[in-house]
């Protein structure tokens, strides 16, 4: 019933102690954030999500790119556009000009995010993860990387493009609440890396790729936007490819184009699961699909 009971009190205490300690710019250690690999996507959890994309305050996740939203008593005609966006002294860009364009659905421990960050330093990339502990790990990891990156500034070490300011992580249920976060056609890329296979037939509705959910992804993706999938479970790969193939809003990326895509390379080598599969010498199955123009 409780969200994540640690199996024994000492372990739990260790976690608490670890979290309370100040780590400066040290990267977090995974062993203090382990959580069961499955979450029920149909249950309510205790999620927080905005009423609508317009209500979302992104400044907690991308402080270098967004100003804090004003909290007004009357939210019905609340809009930030009346305000002059303040200039950000840190990187010389103006705030509130960018939108999240890439989503890593079920980002796990965040390997993909961290590799994508310097690859697309000017693109805002959001990881979504349903497990609280894992989300906390990724958040701590991003914070540490940001701090490290700042301290490198002006130093002799090479600067990381974007300084990890362009990635964020949020705890959420993407199967239920994507339209609360993203507007129509907001995203250019969506990643589904090593999703829960949900082997049993009666659990297939819980799979992250399903005919009905694909319509929602198609709504959020702009025409030409790409869905990337990778899994080490062949059955799931076939399932995902089949449903994407059959969905009228998606067309498969030609093999050539797929193999040239830098995201595919990163997805193969830099996700945590991808590394694990490689260690175990397993196979990895990739399928990428492009969203076509809206027919109406």
């Amino acid at each position: 019933m409780s969200s994540s009971p640690a199996p024994n009190p000492t372990k739990r205490q260790k976690r608490i102690d670890y979290r309370n300690a100040v780590h400066q710019d040290a990267l977090p250690q995974k062993r203090y954030y382990r959580q069961r690999a499955h979450a029920n996507p149909f249950s309510d959890h205790r999620l927080s999500y905005p009423l609508s994309p317009a209500e979302m305050d992104w400044s907690d996740y991308f402080p270098a790119y967004f100003s804090k939203k004003r909290k007004l008593d009357d939210t019905t005609d609340d809009s930030v556009e009346s305000e002059q966006p303040p200039a950000d002294s840190n990187n010389g860009t103006t705030l509130d000009r960018k939108k999240v364009e890439v989503a890593d659905i079920g980002c796990g421990f965040g390997g993909l995010l961290i590799s994508l960050a310097p690859t697309f330093p000017d693109t805002l990339i959001l990881g979504m993860e349903i497990r609280t502990q894992v989300t906390a790990y990724v958040q701590d990891r991003i914070n540490a990387l940001r701090t490290q990156s700042l301290s490198r500034k002006g130093g002799d070490q090479e600067e990381v493009p974007g300084g990890y300011q362009n990635i964020g992580v949020i705890r959420g249920n993407a199967m239920k609440f994507l339209p609360n976060f993203f507007e129509k056609h907001q995203l250019s890329k969506m990643f589904f890396c090593f999703p829960d296979p949900h082997f049993k037939a009666r659990k297939h509705k819980a799979r992250i790729i399903s005919p009905t959910l694909l319509s929602e992804y198609a709504y959020i993706l702009r025409p030409g936007g790409i869905i990337y999938t990778i899994t080490d479970v062949e059955d799931l790969h076939l399932w995902m490819a089949k449903h994407l193939d059959e969905h009228p809003m998606f067309e498969r990326l030609p093999e050539e184009e797929q193999e040239e895509d830098v995201c595919v390379k990163i997805m193969r080598t830099d996700t945590e699961e991808g590394k694990k599969v490689a260690r175990n010498k397993g196979s990895k199955w990739v399928a990428c699909f492009r969203k076509i123009e809206d027919p109406i």
Partner: peptide
């Protein structure tokens, strides 16, 4: 049950038209 109202095209129901979001 999750506060959403969704508007979907018919018969092309794979094309979502939009959402009406405000309910809490």
């Amino acid at each position: 049950r999750d506060e959403h109202i969704r508007v979907t095209n018919y018969p092309l129901t794979h094309v979502i038209h939009g959402f009406c979001l405000a309910h809490t």
